[in-house]
Each structure stands twice: as C-alpha cells, then as structure tokens.
C-alpha cells in the first residue's frame, strides 16, 4: 500500500514537473531575462577585468596583495543578478498577474506539489544558465587580465567558479520565494531590485552596519566566489559558511511562500 502510494506520488510529481517545464519554456520572459543575465554578467565582467589589468601598476601594495583575479571576473554579477531576480519574480508572479493561478491550482490542487515543482524546474534552469555564465565569464575575464590571471587549476578557483553558478541560482530561487509571498510582480521587483543593487551593498560595507549587513543573503553568498581573502578581513565565515547562510535565507523565503500559498484563497 505504502509503496503504491509512493509510486503514485512520484508519478504525480513527474506530471506536474513536465507541465511546469512546458509553462516556463513557452513564455518569452524566460528567454529574455536569462539571456540578459548571461550577457550582462559576461560583458561587465570582461570590462572590469580589462580595466583592473590596466590599473594594476597604480595599485597600492595592500591592493595588490588582496588582488583576486577570479572574483574580479565575476564583477558583472552585481548587475547580472538583477536579471536573475526578474526571472525568479516573473516565473511565480506571472501566475498571479495573468489570472492563470486559478486554472493552475484547479489542475493541481496540491499546492505544495504545485509550488515546489515550479521552483524545481525554474531552479534547475537557473542553475544550468548560472553555471554556464560563471564558466564563460571566468575564462573570458581571465583572458582580459593578461599576466595577472588565475588558472582554473589553482587552489579554490574551481570552487569559486562553480560557486558563481550556485550563487546566481540561489538569488533566483530566493526571488521566487519572495514573489510567492508578495504575488505582485511590481511589488516584488520594487523591493528586491533596490535591495540587492544598493541597500545590501551599503549595509554590508559601511562600518557601522557591517557586522549585521554581512549576514544578508547576497553579502554572505558572494563569499563563495572569492579565492583571495582581502587583508584585514574579519568575516566570521568561510566560502561555504557564507553559502550556507544564503541557503538559509532561501529556505526561509520558500517556507514563507509555501505557508502563505497553502493558507490563502487563490
């Protein structure tokens, strides 16, 4: 009996995942948000790597010691992640803004299965695009850095490059959780975009708020993309520690979204 039920549940989940894949591949916003994330991250990363290469001769001794060629090639993510946020928000809030949500929930009344299938599909797609972006931006960025470049075989570099893909994935999934809670695309973007582009950076770098600000999802998560620890850095967590902190934020956002979806009228 238990086994038959398991099989049925697996089959049902496979159906919903197939359906969510059809949904995600059949709207234009998926293509343009993800391509924008790739193009912006890679182009800006290359530009900043080239500028850093030219500027290296003028740097102070400390700056040269902290010079992290891997992390520099990921500089484009500060903007590229915004496209990932738009992707994550639209995947979920499209359902609400179009009225599709009622049709969707009538077809799949098990709301947990609906939400987590959607997030699994969109998350897997973000992971594939994120990893590809991360590797491309690393190699092209290093090509711009000339003699200062890092190699993929250097200690910690491969972890940082894979980490870049994971970071982009978690940013997208976090946005999905927030959009599930807020439902409105405008409200979700209006909160997430300025938060990740400005507010979090300020809170994480100004000395007065740094101690708290570095536990924000992007501040903690981006640690995984660093290979060289800056001089006089006192961050209390390592690359995977930071990534775990970000993952906790994502879990919290998803849990909040799930509980609200479960409870609310559609």
């Amino acid at each position: 009996m238990g086994r038959r039920l398991d099989e049925e549940l697996t089959m049902a989940a496979a159906q919903v995942i197939r359906s969510e894949w059809t949904k995600i591949r059949s709207v234009a916003s998926t293509v343009w948000t993800l391509s924008l994330a790739v193009v912006v991250t890679v182009a800006l990363g290359m530009l900043i790597a080239a500028l850093s290469n030219n500027d290296f001769g003028n740097m102070s001794r400390n700056d040269r010691l902290s010079f992290d060629p891997t992390f520099i090639s990921f500089a484009g993510m500060s903007l590229g992640q915004l496209a990932m946020i738009v992707f994550g928000v639209l995947v979920v809030s499209n359902e609400y803004s179009t009225g599709m949500i009622r049709t969707s929930l009538a077809a799949v009344p098990q709301r947990g299965a609906f939400l987590f299938s959607k997030i699994a599909v969109a998350g897997a797609l973000a992971l594939a695009v994120g990893l590809a972006t991360s590797f491309v931006t690393f190699f092209l960025g290093q090509a711009m850095l000339g003699s200062h470049k890092a190699s993929i075989g250097d200690s910690g570099v491969l972890r940082a490059v894979i980490g870049g893909g994971l970071y982009m994935t978690l940013i997208a999934v976090f946005s999905m959780g927030v959009a599930t809670m807020l439902r409105s695309p405008m409200l979700s973007l209006g909160i997430l975009m300025p938060f990740f582009f400005l507010i979090s950076n300020i809170l994480g770098n100004v000395s007065a708020t740094k101690k708290v600000g570095r536990y924000l999802p992007d501040q903690a998560g981006s640690k995984i993309m660093r290979v060289v620890t800056p001089i006089d850095d006192d961050t209390p967590y390592g690359p995977w520690g930071g990534f775990a902190i970000m993952a906790l934020w994502v879990v919290a956002a998803l849990a909040g979204g799930y509980l609200l979806l479960k409870k609310r009228d559609a």
Partner: peptide, 12 residues
C-alpha cells in the same frame, strides 16, 4: 471548469 476567460497567460 471555466471560471473566467482571463485564466491564462497571454504570452502563451
């Protein structure tokens, strides 16, 4: 069920 004619994503 047909609830309302707008229960769909216009871009699909």
């Amino acid at each position: 069920a047909l609830l309302d004619a707008k229960g769909m994503h216009g871009g699909r």
